[in-house]
Write a protein that binds this DNA or RNA. Structure first.
Lengths: 227, 227
DNA sequence: GTCTATATTAAGATAGAC
DNA sequence: GTCTATCTTAATATAGAC
């Protein structure tokens, strides 16, 4: 397997799939190049080192996703008013478009985001803070517009809860889809999962904080400890 | 540093902290034993291999948490009726109790769960399917009791969204707490985060699925693509 | 039970011929 | 740009003295 000038792309294609499935640390350059059918040394030639390869893989997707999300948010912000579900729907088309961009692109992207988020090396944080901070800011604005009653502190926490639900779900979307198709006996595409997710996230984001005193537990908690 | 018979415990204590912070694969036995102040070979002597050490670390926490959660859910299920917030509150006391069990136990536990969930080796799945399936079943029942109108399919998906929000948030709770304390200028304990999380999860779990046709996007999506 | 010393394997990276 | 061969490092694991 030699000769053609698309070695770089073949490495990226193989790497993104392996990274998504197994994680960055768990995927060796040898596994990648062997799957790609290229020589081990070519990774170093084309990307310098493994860290740069990881960033190239993430960057290819982020560059396809983030500007599209930014546009959707911009448009929504130019409306007179909006609902929380509309805010989250802004991500729907950009995510689904990734399936045209690459086979299983949407699922792969979300798995990569999930991997990158808990990653020690902070690849994803690097992208967000150096390139896409603006899009995150638009998202914050849109959330505030949809529900101005939310305090900044509530927005902060709810956004992170939301990230967790979205990233985590999509990162394990393949496994979940298999289980769901088996248990409920019907086929599911990425869009169906996204359509389940949007109302969940919107409802959570709009949630009112409960009034709780410090140390309060369920009324029956005390009895349950007695034996 | 030698002699005392608590080598096994010292290894567990060092390992849980390092695993929580850096992940299983990213933490070497050398790092663990050096932090614990014990000899490298003692890991193998006391635990056999690294895989068993990981399970021992997870198991110590799960054994402290799962039975307590099960009891809370049992008690709730014996009531005449319950709300969704009460269902999620069942986890509150068992989680917070971990802070008595080990320093920063609650945060460490959730970080470990987060690591274990995306872990390739499936340590966590192993525990759940071999030991704690019963507790998960109680949780499912409680959710159904709190909102019988939810279809089994909706419950399935919402539980996974919930797991994502909870695990992901708590796994990065230390970082989030730092940011929040800096931005909003007040101290936060684990209980405060849990109290934020519960109403969010309850609202999401109770969310009604939106009525959407296949392929529907935002009304303004078409225009935003024109240039 | 604990230690030193070492076997074994796998990984990232690079030199240098073509 | 691509290949073979190799360097270097770091990890798990174990043997065997104490």
């Amino acid at each position: 397997m030699a000769g053609r000038g698309d070695t770089k792309a073949k490495i990226l294609d193989a790497a993104e799939q392996l990274f998504a499935e197994h994680g960055f640390k768990e995927t060796s350059l040898r596994t990648i190049t062997s799957k790609a059918g290229v020589n081990l040394a070519s990774v170093n030639y084309h990307f310098g080192d493994k860290k740069s390869l990881v960033r190239a893989v993430l960057g290819r997707y982020l560059e396809a996703f983030m500007p599209a999300l930014g546009e959707q948010l911009q448009t929504l912000l130019s409306q007179r008013e909006c609902t929380m579900a509309q805010v989250f729907s802004c991500a729907k088309q950009p995510v689904l478009a990734l399936d045209q961009y690459r086979p299983h692109g949407a699922a792969t992207f979300m798995q990569l985001i999930g991997r990158g988020y808990t990653d020690v090396q902070g690849h994803l944080r690097w992208f967000i803070t150096t390139r896409y901070e603006h899009v995150l800011s638009l998202f914050n604005q849109a959330v505030h517009k949809a529900n101005p009653a939310l305090t900044p502190e509530a927005v902060f926490w709810h956004i992170h809860f939301t990230l967790g639900a979205a990233i985590f779900t999509m990162a394990s979307s393949e496994a979940l889809r298999d289980i769901a198709e088996n248990d409920f006996d019907r086929t599911l595409d990425t869009e169906a999962i996204v359509d389940r997710l949007i109302p969940y996230l919107a409802a959570g984001m709009n949630a009112e904080p409960a009034v709780m005193q410090q140390g309060q537990v369920l009324p029956f908690a005390a009895e349950s400890q007695a034996d």
